[in-house]
Amino acid sequence: MIEIRGLQKAFGAVGVLRGIDLDIADGEVVALIGRSGCGKTTLLRCINFLETYEAGEIRLDGQPLWYRTGADGVRRRMGDAEARRMRQQMGIVFQQYNLFPHMTVLDNVVLGPRFSQGVSALEAEALGRRLLARVGLEGKMSAYPAQLSGGQQQRVAIARALAMRPKVLLLDEITSALDPELVGEVEDVIRSLLSDRIMLVLVTHAVGFAREIAHRIAYIADGAIAELGKPAEVLDRPKDPGLKEFLRRVRS
């Protein structure tokens, strides 16, 4: 499980996250929604330390992440090697796929297990082939990212993240950059993950999809969780006036 306590982050003088508390249980799917600039993507990126943060704690299965407070009371970044080990327990998929353009699809997927986790070449390749088959790309193993559609690239990116056998998968608006007709194929892949009982944290504007797959939805406004609950509560009986306004806009 993931425990987030009192997370605070500022860009200069501007507070982006102002005390986030959130627990994510094993196998839980949590969707983060909110207006652009509300801090939902920053929160996601803090979880795997693509962003630093000034205060608060994040734990994964009880292990404190990213910062250590020494005996002298000073908070320091954890060592690089330790941070790498922690990162290997989580996968992230980006809005723009961000595949490595100079590698084949299979090499993109194999890279992490092979070089971060030291899995043998043979084993890593077998794993890569299995995952690519799972996302429906068994025919594209030796293609290069530039030769694929956006939806295909995003499915490779999901396979690449899964190849690390992560405990949690962070999904950052993964269908926002796609042509509408390609959204479904990526959403189908995410649906197929639900039976794995892996933790999913997704930032999304697709409220309908969030309602379908999320166990809980967090509405974030001004860097804080303004409302948190089951999809039916948050989406159908919103209490926060900002959330009501937000839902009216995304649905119109």
Binding site: A81, R87, L99, M103, L111, F115, S116
Partner: peptide, 28 residues
Amino acid sequence: RPQWESARSLGLPPLAMFRKVVAPLVTR
């Protein structure tokens, strides 16, 4: 920047990062 972030999110050690991501891109 997204290429760095991809490499970091995979937890690649520095040498692998250099050999597999940085060097091939810089060469091109």
